[in-house]
Structures are given as C-alpha cells and as structure tokens.
C-alpha cells in the first residue's frame, strides 16, 4: 500500500512537472557523458592496464599503484605543492574578489564604476595561453616590465620564471589578476540583494560608509561568502592546471609541480595510464573529503551549507 502510493505520487508529480525535468536533461546528459561514463575507466587504478588488452581484460593488481605512488618522491612533492599553492590561493585569492566587490560597491560614479568593472572582468575572458604569454613577457629578464622597473631602482634583473621561490607568488598573483574581477560578480550580486532600507536606517542612525560596510554589507553577504568558501575548499586539489603547465619548467618543478601536472606527465607523456589514474583518484578522494568536512562544519556553525 505504502510504496505503491508513493510510486503513484512520483508518477503524478512527473506528469505535472515534466517540463522542468526536460529542462534538466541536458545537464544530466552532460554529467553522464563527461563525468560518470569516464568513471568506468577509474578501475585501471587497480589494474595492470595495457591499451592492447583494454580496461576490462587487464588483470587486477590491488593497491600496487598506490603503494608505488606513496613511495614516489615526486608524487609526495606534488601533493605538498598542491596544498601549498592552494593554501596561498585561498589566503590571497579568496578574499580578493570580496574586497573588489566591496570596493566597487563604494564607487558612486556610475560610468567610472562600469569602466573599472569591465577592465577587471576582462582577463577572465582571455585564454590562459595568452595570459601566460603576458606573464612570461612581463617577467622576462631582458624586455619585461618588472625587470625594467627593478633596474630603475638599481636592482639586477631576475629571471623570475626559472626561480622556484618565485613560482608560487607569480602563479597566485596571475590567478588573482585573471579571476578576481569575474569572481566579484557573485559578491556584487549578493550585495545588490541587501535591502536599501538597512542602509538608510543606518544613515539616519549616523553610521558612516566604513561602519555600514562592516556592520551591514559584510554580515549580509556572509552566507554567500561561506558557500563560495566551501566550493573553494572542495576545489583545493584542483589547481588551475593549464596555467601551471604554461608557466612551469623543469627548473621550477620543485615548487610548481602539482598532482594534476604530475598525473598529466605520467599518464599522457609517459603512457602510464594506470599509475596516473591512481594518482587522480587519490586527488579526487581528498577533494571529496574536504567538501564534506567544509560543508558539515559550515552547517553546524553558521546555518549555511550547500546541501
């Protein structure tokens, strides 16, 4: 009786709301084709895979790839590099769009605001290849603007992109330059949703703009900030892979090689697909745990969560 009526209810619901599910369909198909179907191939992380035998016929070898992975210095280094770059990204890259949004919110002159916004959104729409080209040129020891400026102050030119200690700051800085403007849109939208009467009431109470920002704007957009932070933490293992490939070179592997670039080199360049799949799976597992933890903590302490 009970399960049947439930099925009836679902059928009834589908009959009534089918349009909504039709609209959902392209996204579901996209997920299946590009995310779920490839998961079938994940099993090679536990197999001695060879392209000639194919995924199904390759023999199982248990955790052998993982054992090898954790005894591989390069992999351990890549994990640490990922964590360090992500931590820096979180520390500097996460607040940047929020600060930018708060600053835009204080700009009263409409034309000036629009122009400034367009300028900071722009890098987002430029291909990473071009971004990397600009960065490489800017930091070049011979013609780069950075070294030119350093020379004015009598500092010898530095070949930044070959120095491991400079890779992280340059990479994180480039990421901010590329994405902070576009990322600020989410926060600007959240700010736009704050009722104007909250500010008017504060104006009558005597609050200045600084106080309004701290006491009204920031608390009001805090739920958005937390959601974005959860997403960000979930993506901590996903360092922007193209940009690293474009900017790093063997001289900077020491600080620049992350799990994704390691997987790329092992899998695609050296043809060790099974080993690379194991590394990728490990990466995904860590990311999964991080999202779960971040979401649970947030739900418990701030009543805001993704699910």
């Amino acid at each position: 009786m009970q399960p049947e009526s439930r099925i009836n209810r679902i059928i009834h619901h589908l009959q009534r709301e089918w349009q909504i599910y039709v609209m959902l369909l392209p996204t579901i198909i996209w997920f299946i084709v590009f995310l779920y179907k490839p998961m079938y191939g994940l099993q090679i992380a536990f197999k001695d895979y060879s392209i000639f035998r194919g995924v199904a016929k390759s023999p199982w070898i248990g955790l052998e790839h993982f054992e090898y992975l954790f005894s591989n210095d390069q992999f351990i280094r890549a994990v640490w590099n990922t964590i360090k770059i992500s931590a820096l990204n979180l520390l500097f890259g996460f607040p940047a769009p929020i600060i930018l949004a708060l600053m835009f919110n204080e700009v009263l002159h409409a034309t000036y605001k629009k122009t400034a916004q367009t300028i900071v959104y722009l890098p987002h729409f430029i291909s990473s290849v071009i971004i990397a080209g600009i960065v490489i040129t800017a930091f070049s020891p011979s013609v780069g603007i950075v070294n030119t400026v350093l020379e004015w102050f009598g500092i010898d030119s530095i070949y930044f992109l070959t120095k491991p200690e400079w890779f992280r700051p340059i990479f994180v800085g480039t990421g901010i330059w590329q994405e902070a403007g576009f990322g600020s849109i989410v926060f600007l939208a959240a700010i736009a949703g704050v009722s104007p009467s909250l500010y008017e009431s504060a104006v009558v109470d005597g609050a200045n703009r600084w106080q309004m920002m701290w006491k009204i704007t920031i608390p009001s957009i805090l739920p958005t900030i937390i959601i974005m932070l959860i997403i960000r933490i979930g993506n901590i293992m996903e360092v922007s892979f193209e940009l690293i490939i474009l900017l790093y070179q063997p001289a900077t592997y020491e600080t620049a090689d992350v799990v994704n670039t390691f997987v790329y080199r092992q899998g695609l360049q050296n043809g060790q697909y099974d080993f690379a799949a194991a590394a990728g799976l490990f990466n995904a597992l860590v990311a999964f745990v991080l999202v779960m933890v971040a979401n649970t903590l947030s739900r418990r302490y701030s009543r805001t969560s993704l699910w």
């Binding site: 009722s195 008017e200 009431s201």
Partner: peptide, 12 residues
Amino acid sequence: AMVFQNYALYPH
C-alpha cells in the same frame, strides 16, 4: 529617527 515599512532590521 525613522521607522521603515519593511522594518529594516539587521537579520544577523
């Protein structure tokens, strides 16, 4: 001092 139609209370 002004009292607004939608109360203008700070939700946080």
